[in-house]
Design a protein around this nucleic acid. Structure first.
Length: 113
RNA sequence: AGAGUAAACCGAAUGGUCGCGGAAAAGUUUUUUAAACUUUUAUGAGGAAAGUCCGGGCUCCAUAGAGCAAUGGUGCUGGGUAACGCCCAGUAAGGGAAACCUUAAGGAAAGUGCAACAGAAAAUAACCGCCACAUAAUUUAUGUGGUAAGGAUGAAAAGGUAGGGUAAGAGCCUACCGCUAAUAUGGUGACAUAUUAGGUCAAUGUAAACCCCACCUGGAGCAACACCGAAUAAAAAGAAGAUUAAGACUGCUCGUCGCCUUCUUGAACUGGUGGCUUGAUAUAUAUAGUAAUAUAUAUACUAGAUAAAUGACCAUUUAAGACAGAACCCGGCUUAUAGAUUUACUUAAAUU
RNA sequence: GCGGAUGUGGCGGAAUUGGUAGACGCGCUGGUCUUAGGAACCAGUGCCAACGGCGUGGGGGUUCGAGUCCCUUCAUCCGCA
């Protein structure tokens, strides 16, 4: 199994947020864009205004953990950015909610193998 | 018992399955360094990591400058410390029944300012009142003088109470209380106690108003700063010139550097590496000290990321639930905080 | 991470050295005018248990008295690679 690659630079995020396709769930939002490489890259962005530092870190961990479990089941060659929905309080973050949400979104995209 | 006060300490643990950060060792591949991957091993957020309110280390700015003493800070006393606005021990004032707690606690007789409204008057107090005398007049008016006992006000009105005294009054005199000063004793000292003297004991409050006194104080910050790489011709560095014109060194004067133009060398930045964790370090014991703390000995090495590492699920502990995430590093302060434990002390009211 | 600034009615924005908080403009409400609307003019407009009390982001202090001075805290905004 390959190690999960992450997006690092601000311009990479901007490119996907402006040019990528947008999908929304109950808790999280997803921007996705094809790249022609043999790996997937993900990035997670949680705004400063949504919560305090430990809360944002917690949400990042939950999203990363969920992605890790689904990673083997999805197709290769995408760049994905996850956002937290601004309307939902960050205190409602929960592993199972995000699991369900991410499954639904990925089905909608049709990214499963 | 309950209630309260002060101090200290913890702030999830154990097992299983997957997963992440950097470190060390071994192996495989490309093989010159090194890079990638795999496996194993131990290890990986806090008491506040927070606010950025102070003090340092470290780096650069001229070696961090000279004069004015301007700016800013601190402010009972003694001690501790690398240093502090912090800590410890005491003093004074205030609060509490008590244990104990709180305090930006120098100077208002060096000078200046302010004190709205009300009030006669807000700081060199005579408007009304009281008293004496004079004049007019006939029981009032006017003038001169004495008087701080009484008077609406106000946050604040010129020591308080009682008696004597007087034309009326007044520290005018006496007693007590308060206040001030001197001397003595105790204490390193703030200060305390005692004695004596003082009624010229007139000069209110405000210094978190200006100010005075004592002590301290250069600026910027790890996005500091140093180095490497590739790609491109804006900035930077060096030299020369001109002008004192923006600006930097916290205010002013000097001094140093600098705008701009020309020439030469080649960079910025969203790349990378160092800075980056062994330190005024932690733990234990002993000694000195009331204590803060210091000294000695032994042992330990305990995060170092860069879109940024600690999570998910299951089981057990009755329940796992608070505040909350290192970003160069230390010493404090302040603020947030469910619950749990220990020690010492107090006991008025209410309950048993 | 570091450095700096600002918080006053519904909105913008005043308040001289500490001395009646809400000037002024916009908006809103009511009235006059009009068949109706607009415009214009006039009046009102912080909150409450309404005599009175509370109000300058929150809490505390200095002062007789604080929007103003001091401490602390919260929120918002800006700059620095």
């Amino acid at each position: 199994m390959q190690k999960t690659e992450t997006l690092k630079k601000n311009y990479e995020f901007k490119k996907i947020l402006t040019k990528g396709k947008y999908y929304s769930g109950e808790y999280i939002e997803v921007f996705i864009k094809q790249n022609n490489q043999a790996i997937n890259k993900i990035g997670i962005a949680i705004g400063v205004k949504l919560g305090k530092a430990f809360q944002r870190n917690y949400v990042k961990r939950l999203i990363r953990e969920n992605y890790r479990k689904l990673e083997e089941k999805i197709k290769v060659g995408y760049e994905i950015v996850f956002l937290w929905k601004k309307k939902v309080s960050i205190k409602n973050a929960n592993y199972h909610y995000i699991e369900e949400d991410m499954n639904n979104i990925f089905k909608k995209i049709g990214i499963f193998k």
